[in-house]
Write a protein that binds this DNA or RNA. Structure first.
Length: 751
DNA sequence: GACTCCGATCTTTTT
DNA sequence: GATCGGAGTC
């Protein structure tokens, strides 16, 4: 139990008081994860609790994995039997086991947000409603909000408050859309993200025997990031722990940043009311950051009115002042940040992985990436458009999904005529309408297609059905990897992509291969119990941006949104784009509560930094494809000025609308790439206007060079064998490609 | 049914 | 800047 000695007083309390309801309010950097991991280790080691009886819920798979690894270090491989995962993955697992009780097939599909919005779009169209009034996003958010507050479509239609509300918003049909949407999902054997929680609640409410079973199983329930739970999640955990009352929630109201998704800060405030014998522990000592950073963060969060009383302090050194960088344009901001990283690295012997650049919106990454590439600083982007959102990946996934669940409407729409097989939109519509009118399953309609479609189209459908049956057979008789490969081939996707010889087509082909590799990896992973294709698909459906950074150990600067950064820490942090309307976002400024959420977001960003914090803003920025002038964010003024110094490196010229369209030409090079994977961006490099090959007589290995097409690279070795002198040059912009190039096109950049 | 072209629309964060 | 859908054509 040596690890107990390393804890401070409140941390120790949090670890050893394992029984009864407990709430741990953990300030930023106060060792929250340590307490949680030690608490679980303590339960297993000291109390002799079987890991099988412990349930720990997190928000990201990454957090779950990290915690499991840390516990494993203390207690050994026993930790593998813990029930630990995200809310969505744990309850998806339970729902699969109990699906029949709700009338769902156990191989139900999980709809992602795209699937949901697509379905809403079709429904709005079918109802002949105006899609400008019933925008998929708006409708989806409304339905999602209802589900997160456990309001079923029946309740929604019944309750006059919602009706009046919708009517005053000129959207009286929302209840009807909600109803049809729910019915269609049910018919398709599909649940969306919110359903995973909503249906768990239904399951526990209507089937007390099931609830009882899980109440008996989970002797101890723990919830991480409690401030980000919504009502639906809160009720599940409350029910599960109702018998033994061993519930422990850990959170920080100051870091609640998901109210937009239904997270309810009231959960924290109400927790005391729900449990009269609640033990509250406050972790207030920050071990992560310098005094400057802690105090600056405090000066920000003090502006919020809705918060619990808490005094976050630190014993660490004062540290340096926060440096404020001022740029004229977003590109310039990138350059300032990149060169600042370069300098800091040199001066303080830091590694790339000691740095993070945090921004409010994903689109801000572009200017940063460009600048970092130009300075040859390696970086990785966390989140953004993920691999699994790419079209070619979704296409193959739709085949896999449909081969498992033949009623999955959204997957069917994706694949029935891709690759082209002569089944057009009107045929597809007829199929769906037939299924709804005759109250048949989609698969039944497809199997009796000749009663619904004329000959030519019907024949195409018959071939398609045969294809799917073959795939189903493959899945049942082969392992997941072989089956997926056969489907990729048999569907014609591989052939279709292989025929496309453009750079983008090639990369799409490679991506499909990459997905197959992922299946192979999954099959070969000894830690996975269920190796079926269905299990793989479920894992993929619930994966998040932060989870799939394979090259974690590589020396790279991390770029991500502030939302993704929650729970992480870095030596040096750059918060960029501190401009009014961007951060705080103009979409959040309609109410005071929203501004407070933005402020908490800013607080989260600041408290990621251990040693040194930089902030920057630009006076002009590309937005909506146009260059706009910007003003510094109000948040800068809210920090006590004694913590800030303005960098001298800011550019002196007055901001003007930047006509340099470097960004434009850079982007046009990749216009046809519908999928932008940020890490390895395969695009032609736009040289500086004044690019000219330089005298390369003195070229040697180790020198940096510039090439008009490939950008900056490092000379690896010289090749004097041929008639022309050539050099092997490594371009990390091109995914670490090494190319043999003639001297004639190279410009020596530096050595 | 397939294809092409044009214009409207939307750009906050994510399980 | 990118995507989606509609209109028009073959």
């Amino acid at each position: 139990m040596d690890y107990l000695k390393s804890l401070n007083e409140p941390q120790y309390e949090g670890v050893v008081n394992t029984d009864g309801p407990t709430m741990i309010i953990a300030g930023a950097g106060s060792g929250k994860t340590r307490v949680l991991t030690f608490r679980i280790a303590y339960l297993i080691e000291k109390k002799g609790v079987d890991p099988f009886n412990i349930l720990a819920l997190t928000f990201t798979n990454k957090a779950a994995k990290e915690m499991r690894d840390r516990i494993e270090k203390v207690v050994g491989t026993e930790a593998r039997n813990l029930w630990m995962g995200t809310f969505h993955s744990v309850f998806a697992r339970i729902l699969r086991a109990e699906a029949d009780k709700l009338g769902y097939p156990s191989n139900f599909t999980i709809y992602d947000a795209d699937d949901s919005k697509q379905l809403i779009k079709t429904i709005v169209k079918e109802l002949n409603l105006d899609d400008k009034v019933y925008k998929p996003n708006v409708v989806f958010n409304r339905i999602s909000g209802a589900k997160n507050r456990l309001i079923s479509w029946k309740e929604y239609l019944r309750n006059p408050v919602y009706k009046a509300d919708d009517e005053s918003n000129m959207k009286p049909e929302l209840g009807r859309i909600y109803k049809i949407y729910s019915e269609r999902c049910f018919k398709a054997g599909a649940m969306d993200f919110d359903d995973l929680l909503f249906n768990t609640n239904v399951l526990f409410k209507d089937h007390l025997d099931v609830l009882n079973k899980y109440q008996q199983r989970f002797h101890y329930v723990m919830v991480d990031e409690f401030q980000d739970t919504n009502i639906s999640q809160y009720l599940i955990t409350k029910k599960l722990s109702a018998v033994r009352q061993n519930i422990c929630v850990v959170g920080d109201d100051a870091q609640s940043i998901y109210a937009f998704r239904g997270a309810d800060i009231q959960n924290i405030l109400n927790f005391e009311k729900d449990y009269s014998d609640l033990r509250v522990i406050k972790l207030e000592q920050n071990y992560r950051s310098t005094k400057t950073i802690v105090n600056a963060a405090n000066s920000i969060i003090d502006k919020n009115r809705a918060q619990l009383k808490k005094n976050v302090w630190t014993d660490n050194e004062d540290g340096t002042l926060i440096e404020l960088l001022k740029a004229t344009s977003d590109n310039e901001e990138g350059k300032l940040v990149a060169s600042s990283i370069f300098e800091e690295k040199m001066q303080n012997q830091l590694k790339n992985s000691d740095f993070a650049i945090l921004y409010r919106t994903n689109s801000q990454s572009r200017a940063m990436e460009e600048a970092l590439r130009r300075m040859n600083i390696k970086y990785k982007i966390v989140g953004g458009l993920s691999f699994y959102q790419r079209k070619e990946i979704k296409d193959l996934m739709a085949y896999l999904r449909f081969a498992i669940n033949h009623n999955d409407e959204q997957s069917l729409r994706r694949i029935i005529n891709y690759p082209k097989r002569g089944i057009g939109d009107s045929s597809v519509d007829k199929i769906i309408v037939a299924a709804n009118d005759h109250n048949m399953g989609l698969w039944d309609v497809l199997n009796n297609i000749s009663s619904f479609l004329p000959g030519r189209a019907a024949n195409a459908v018959i071939d398609f059905v045969a294809l799917i049956k073959r795939f189903k057979y493959d899945i049942e008789s082969k392992d997941a990897y072989e089956a997926a490969s056969l489907i990729a081939k048999g569907s014609g996707i591989l052939k279709e992509l292989y025929a496309d010889k453009t750079v983008e087509g090639l990369s799409r082909y490679e991506n499909v291969q990459e997905l197959l590799n992922a299946v192979k990896e999954y099959v070969d992973d000894p830690e996975k119990e269920d190796k079926s294709l269905g299990a793989f698909l479920q894992e993929i459906a619930l994966i998040t941006g932060v989870d799939n950074d394979k090259d974690d150990d590589e020396e790279k600067v991390t770029l991500m949104t502030i939302h993704m950064a929650k729970g992480l820490e870095f030596k040096n942090v750059y918060i960029v784009g501190l401009e009014e309307d961007l951060f705080p976002s103009q979409m959040m400024l309609s109410s005071r509560a929203d501004l407070e959420e933005e402020r908490r977001l800013f607080y989260v960003a600041i408290t990621r930094a251990e040693n040194k914090l930089f902030m920057s803003y630009a006076l002009s920025r590309y937005r909506f494809g146009r260059l706009k002038n910007c003003e510094p964010s109000r948040f800068i003024d809210e920090i006590d000025p004694m913590f800030i110094k303005v960098s001298k490196k800011y550019t002196k010229k007055e901001p003007t609308v930047d006509t340099n369209n470097y960004t434009k030409s850079f982007v046009s090079g990749m216009r046809k790439t519908t999928t932008s994977q940020p890490v390895v961006r395969k695009t032609s490099y736009k040289p500086s206007a004044d690019f000219e090959p330089s005298d390369t007589s003195g070229l040697q290995a180790g020198m940096k060079v510039e090439h008009p097409k490939f950008g900056y690279g490092m000379v690896m070795e010289m090749d004097e064998s041929g008639a022309n002198r050539k050099a092997k040059v490594n371009f990390n912009d091109f995914g670490e490609k090494t190319l043999l190039l003639s001297f004639a096109k190279l410009k020596i950049h530096s050595n």
